[in-house]
């Protein structure tokens, strides 16, 4: 029963997703499956195979950021695979750097999840159909969106991490994302050093703006389709 409700075109994906389910990453889906198997009388909630419910605590935070690094790496790879014709040689040099960094972040977080015995979310293929990736301006605007989202996401959750070395690891990545964001901003609109990305309300002045996982996932939702990501189990304090 569980296989049929999880059928997919790719066996590899199927195996990955089943492993993932068994490791309790997808809490809602796994519960519904158990219920369906137990009793005919139990009202069953339709299983949503595309719901990714992230775990609690540091494992959930690592998975959340792993998902975003997958997204960023996926984006830059897509651009490099089919670069817009008006992209300049210097742009490509930088975009390769950015792709490499995001790829390394992605793989490092996957490894960190393994070290913490936490089940990773599956490897996703992203939906970039809402972006205009056929012009330089479109690519840079999209890159700005992804980098700013990444910066705000790290800023929004780093203080929620419980483990000291995990905190240090994530902080090492967070400042590189901020470097990326400023660089892309400068490529896109030169001489507009970004001061709009900070909070200026007492008692906070010139402190980077942040976004909660709920806000970030809402903004990134179109890229995950048909998957939906639930972050309700992530720590909030």
């Amino acid at each position: 029963m569980s296989s049929s409700s999880l059928s997919d075109t790719s066996t590899g994906t199927l195996v990955r997703r089943r492993t993932f389910l068994q490791a309790a990453g997808v809490v809602a889906g796994a519960t519904a499956l158990t219920l369906a198997g137990c009793s005919d009388d139990t009202p069953t909630t339709p299983v949503d195979p595309y719901l990714l419910s992230l775990q609690e605590a540091d494992a959930g935070l690592l998975n959340y950021l792993y998902l975003l690094e997958q997204l960023e790496a996926g984006f830059y790879q897509q651009v490099l695979d089919v670069p817009p014709t008006d992209l300049q040689a210097s742009d490509l040099t930088y975009l390769r750097d950015l792709r490499d960094h995001e790829l390394i972040h992605r793989e490092t977080l996957l490894f960190a999840l393994g070290s913490a015995n936490a089940a990773p979310v599956p490897t996703l293929t992203f939906n970039f159909s809402t972006l205009n990736l056929t012009t330089r301006a479109g690519v840079l605007a999209a890159a700005k969106t992804f980098e700013e989202l990444g910066v705000a996401a790290y800023n929004g959750v780093l203080h929620l991490v419980a483990d000291t070395t995990t905190l240090q690891l994530l902080a090492k990545i967070a400042s590189v994302e901020a470097r990326h964001a400023d660089f892309i901003n400068e490529l896109l609109t030169p001489n507009t050093f970004a001061t709009t990305m900070v909070v200026n309300e007492g008692p906070l002045f010139s402190v980077a703006a942040s976004k909660t996982p709920t806000q970030v996932i809402a903004e990134a939702a179109p890229f995950f389709l048909p998957y939906k990501v639930s972050v309700t189990a992530l720590p909030t304090t």
Binding site: V151, Y154, N155, L158, H159, L160, T164, L167, Q168, A171, A174, S175, V176, A178, R179, H180, A181, D182, F183, E186, F193, A194, M197, V198, V199, L204, S206, V207, A208, A209, S210, T237
Partner: peptide, 27 residues
């Protein structure tokens, strides 16, 4: 950052200043 782990408010503030410093550095 790790030394501020016991005070989440200060940790968050310090890390978000850190993010702004990284933008400065990049610029």
């Amino acid at each position: 950052a790790p030394k501020l782990l016991s005070n989440k408010t200060l940790l968050e503030t310090a890390l978000n200043i850190h993010s702004v410093e990284a933008r400065h550095a990049s610029h």
